[in-house]
Design a protein around this nucleic acid. Structure first.
Length: 484
RNA sequence: GGCGCGGUAGCCAAGUGGUAAGGCAGAGGUCUGCAAAACCUUUAUUCAGCGGUUCGAAUCCGCUCCGCGCCUCCA
């Protein structure tokens, strides 16, 4: 079954295939590094990660470029306030961004590129636009004239004919010919950083960096361009105007946009005090896997209500899957079973994988994909309970989880991921560190006491273990334990 | 004013014409010396409301109510 994705350009679900061979050329708008990224940013980056993984699962190779915006008004203002250069100011946030991504298991794009490494190309692009008659200069700054691009508005489906009453048209300090014209190259101003280029002393406008870097690395027509819904207008609309004016070709075939999330049913905003970074959530004791699971569990085009109850529910759901995996790996299984045969059970696993796949093929319907997995877990647990799950089907069942985790990636706790800052995670209180051998010895003593029907002693030993953060599970296959 | 989205069980949330997925919480049960953990079962005659189309609607159409987004920096 083919992958179908919702294209903002056409407002429809379309079958996706790359333009050239097997490689998907994808560009995503990365962070502006003037602060730590927040949970809303992470929703978008998680969506892009799921998209990456699903495209690869379906056999495509990726050439994915993500930009880092490291020159921009807020950065300039903050750097000036702190008496730092742009690079001095942005470097720590850039590093923090990659740490956050690693903690959430977000795959690194094939190329991560910075705006300040492409100033020359941007200035050249502005020159090209000037030569094509798409620009004008006002007070030293160069603007893009949207009247030169008749298709302006085709992405956001805004109609700019005539006056839009009620809209707050902000004609700022610069003298723009049309309120919607946007700046390509800002004239040098005061003490602000600037570059000396033929187009003039100054710095690039925001939108031009994405057009330039995307086309430099991926060619004139991308397969996919993605970002948050807020970028549809004006950022992506402007990217289209610039890029297509330069090349005369479609800039991107697919435009994918992820919805915003809300916090406890409210808009996330600094003034409401519900503005969370990953670090904030770690301090509250939530794990990266819980956060990733919650962010991934709601299809990307739906608003996601991000709540602390939701995070707890996500943690419990992951625990259920981990328990299931553990059971599958360690259970003693019969060679022969009555009732449902190996073939039927194999078909059940195949059906679960097929349902998982078709859900994600359908515009990345992660909620439906999860349902397929949990249904399989329940069915298989039942069969295991009945001692009717044969050894021959073990691998097939584990494969369902492997397929699931290739995309969701929440079954393994964080460990040695390069660049991973485990120190940022809230450490669970483990008052006393018992070695495995010590734990085993205490459990053996308890088992012996139980056998001797000395339940007082057995309960003492159990209490001691619980106190030290060890969870005892008496199963019919013997005692299992795990650290809490 | 323009464009667009949404209102499904206590909470989160699939489903866009064929008779309500899944997760969490709750309740009951299995297991156990008792527990815990784990697992199982169960939980919406109903999909904001009112009309309409249809053999049949949560799904299509109209109206009403409520919430939200973009049109301005923003994931």
């Amino acid at each position: 079954m083919p992958i179908r994705l919702h294209n903002t350009l056409t407002q429809q679900l379309e079958v996706f295939t790359p333009l050239h061979g097997n490689t998907v050329r994808m560009y995503t708008c990365g962070p502006t590094v003037y602060n730590f990224i927040h949970i809303g940013n992470l929703r978008t980056f998680t969506f892009q990660d799921i998209l990456r993984r699903w495209l690869r699962y379906r056999g495509y190779a990726l050439d994915h470029v993500m930009n880092i915006t490291d020159v921009e008004d807020k950065i300039i203002a903050s750097a000036a306030r702190d008496h730092k250069t742009l690079a001095e100011y942005t470097a720590p946030y850039e590093q923090a961004f990659f740490e956050d991504c690693a903690l959430l298991r977000l795959e690194r794009p094939e190329r991560v590129v910075k705006a300040t490494d492409h100033i020359l190309e941007m200035a050249e692009a502005v020159q090209t636009l000037k030569a094509k008659g798409c620009t004008y200069v006002s007070e030293g700054s160069t603007y893009f004239r949207i009247a030169s691009f008749p298709e302006y508005g085709k992405l956001s489906h805004n109609n700019f004919d005539g006056i839009i009453s009620g809209a707050r048209v902000d004609v700022d300090e610069y003298d723009k010919a049309d309120a919607r014209d946007f700046v390509l190259w800002k004239a040098r101003k005061g003490d602000e950083p600037f570059w000396h280029e033929p187009i003039g002393d100054g710095r690039p406008g925001w939108h031009i960096e994405c057009s330039v870097m995307a086309m430099k690395y991926l060619g004139e027509t991308l397969d996919i361009h993605a970002g948050g819904v807020d970028l549809i207008f004006p950022h992506h609309e402007n990217e289209i105007a610039q890029s297509e004016s330069i090349t005369g070709k479609p800039f991107s075939r697919f435009w994918l946009h992820s919805e915003h999330l809300q916090i406890e049913s409210q808009k996330m905003s600094k003034s409401l005090g519900n503005f969370y970074t990953l670090r904030d959530l770690f301090e509250k004791g939530f794990s990266p896997e819980s956060i990733r699971f919650l962010l991934a569990s709601v299809p990307y085009r739906k608003k996601l209500n991000f709540t602390f109850d939701g995070l707890k529910a996500a943690a419990t759901a992951i625990e259920r899957l981990r328990n299931f995996e553990d059971r599958l790996k360690t259970a003693k299984l019969p060679d022969q079973t009555a009732g449902a045969g190996a073939e039927e059970l194999a078909a059940r696993a195949a059906k679960a994988v097929a349902a998982f796949e078709s859900s994600l093929d359908d515009d990345l319907n992660t909620a439906e994909a999860l349902a397929a997995v949990f249904e399989f877990v329940r069915e298989t647990n039942t069969t295991l309970d009945q001692d009717r799950f044969p050894e021959a089907n073990r691998a097939g069942a584990l494969n369902v989880l492997n397929v699931f985790d290739r995309i969701f990636d929440v079954l393994r706790p964080n460990e040695q991921v390069p660049g991973l800052r485990l120190d940022l995670l809230a450490q669970p209180e483990s008052p006393v560190g018992l070695t495995d051998a010590e734990i085993e010895r205490l459990i053996e003593a308890r088992t012996a006491a139980k056998k001797a029907r000395n339940f007082v002693r057995a309960d003492e030993l159990r209490a001691e273990l619980v106190e030290k953060g060890i969870l005892i599970e008496d199963t019919k296959d013997g005692v299992r334990w795990k650290r809490k």
